[in-house]
Structure formats: C-alpha cells, structure tokens
C-alpha cells in the first residue's frame, strides 16, 4: 500500500501544476481579436473535455488496480465496446465537427467591410510588409486598421518562414513560390508581437516583428507616410 500513496500523490501533484498566468506579448491565450479568440475558446473547451477524459481513464485504471474485482460486474466486451468504441467515437465526431465548423467560420469571417489585403514577405531574417500591391512597404512592423479583417498573404524570398501574430490569429507559412493567406484582426489599437515560427536558419530567433493596430483614420495617415517597397528594403 505504500506504493499506492506514491501513485496518488504524484497524480494530485501534477494535475495542479502550472496553469497560472496566461499573459504575454505573444500569448495565444490572451487574444486581442475574434480570430485568436475563437481559437482560444476552442482550446479552453478541449482542455476541459481532455481533463475529464484523462481523469476518467486514469481513475478506471487505478480502480481496477487497487480495488481488484471492482470492474468485474461489467463484462469484458462491454468494457471494450462502450469505453473503447462508442464513447470515443461519439466524442470525437462531435469534436471534429465542431473544429471544422469553427475553421470554416474563421476562414469566412469578414468584419468591417472588405478585408484589407497586405503581403508579408519573409527573408533571412526579417519581414517586409507591402500594402496596396507594393505601392507602400514597411519593414519589421505591420500596420493594420483596428476592427477590420486583414488578409495577410505570406511568401518568401529564400527558405520557409512562418508568419505568426498569436494574439490576432493563427499562423501561415511563407513558402518560396507559394502565396498562402491567413486572416487576422485586432479589436483595440495597440502593438502586438509577431514571430517567425518555422525554423529558417541561425537567425531564426531574432526574426520578430510587430503589428501596430491603428484606428481607421490614423491608419490611412500611417500608410500615406510609408515609402514604396524599394526604399523600405534599404
């Protein structure tokens, strides 16, 4: 029985381990817009469900181990069919359906009229952002209007990078020869962190950027103040 205490003690210890504090400039758990929020909600939902399932399975294991015979009233085939087939199948079909609905929502969501289109161009090891088909450009800082969906088209000039502003939405890989898009949106004006999340060589650590979200009028002014792409590249 000494061992039994060991089993349970560790169980209790590790389940209360670190779940404190979810802030930070790059924290996906501190969403600042509907896209990131939709994903954060999904996470909390899955966390709750996952914790319940984990406790159930582990509880059953400890039960049959330390109370031999306690599971004998249920026939073996019922154990397997109910616990191993029906329960996971129902749960998973529901979750997968939910995940796909949420993905479709994120892919089609439009807030604040026509989306703003920008291009994020990664190269070793910095980001350049282009607006209005390259008429305006900025380096290391992406300017976006508040409250409007922004479609970021990511591409690369050398190796694969990945555009990620965790508080505003998901990430998208910047692949040479390809142009894929991700939608981001900021609810409030402010400065949000961004980081390259695909390993791209020794400068990978430092390949950060900032997203500056401006109110609509200020955004136009900031854009007007930017130069064209050739100057920005200097």
């Amino acid at each position: 029985m000494r061992r039994a205490i060991g089993f349970r003690g560790v169980l209790a210890f590790s389940s209360v381990l670190p779940l404190a504090g979810c802030t930070g400039d790059l924290s996906a758990l501190d969403p600042a817009g509907p896209f990131a929020a939709a994903i954060a909600d999904l996470w909390w939902l899955m966390l709750a469900g996952g914790a319940a399932i984990f406790l159930l399975v582990l509880g059953l294991f400890l039960l049959v181990l330390f109370r031999p015979g306690s599971g004998r009233r249920i026939s073996p085939s019922r154990w397997i069919w109910v616990g191993g087939v029906v329960f996971p199948l129902v749960t998973l079909v529901a979750l997968i359906g939910h995940g796909l609905i949420r993905g479709e929502y994120i892919l089609n969501l439009r807030i604040g009229g026509d989306p703003v289109e920008v291009e994020a161009r990664g190269s070793m090891w910095h980001w350049e952002f282009r607006y209005a088909d390259g008429a305006r450009a900025s380096r290391g800082v992406l300017h976006i209007p508040v409250g409007r969906t922004v479609v970021v088209t990511a591409t690369s000039e050398d190796v694969i990078h990945s555009f990620w502003a965790p508080r505003l939405g998901g990430k998208i890989d910047a692949i040479p020869g390809h142009a894929a898009t991700v939608r981001i949106l900021a609810d409030r004006p402010g400065i949000y962190g961004g980081i390259c999340s695909e390993y791209c060589g020794t400068g990978h650590d430092g390949m950060r950027f900032e997203v500056h979200a401006h109110p609509a009028e200020a955004y136009e002014a900031v854009l007007a103040g930017l130069s064209g792409e050739r100057e920005a590249a200097r």
């Binding site: 994903i39 996470w43 997968i96």
Partner: peptide, 9 residues
C-alpha cells in the same frame, strides 16, 4: 488534429 487550434499551436 483540430485545424484552427493547430494554426496557433
């Protein structure tokens, strides 16, 4: 495996 969550994680 859930597509939107993976976009973050």
């Amino acid at each position: 495996a859930m597509v939107p969550f993976d976009w973050q994680a």
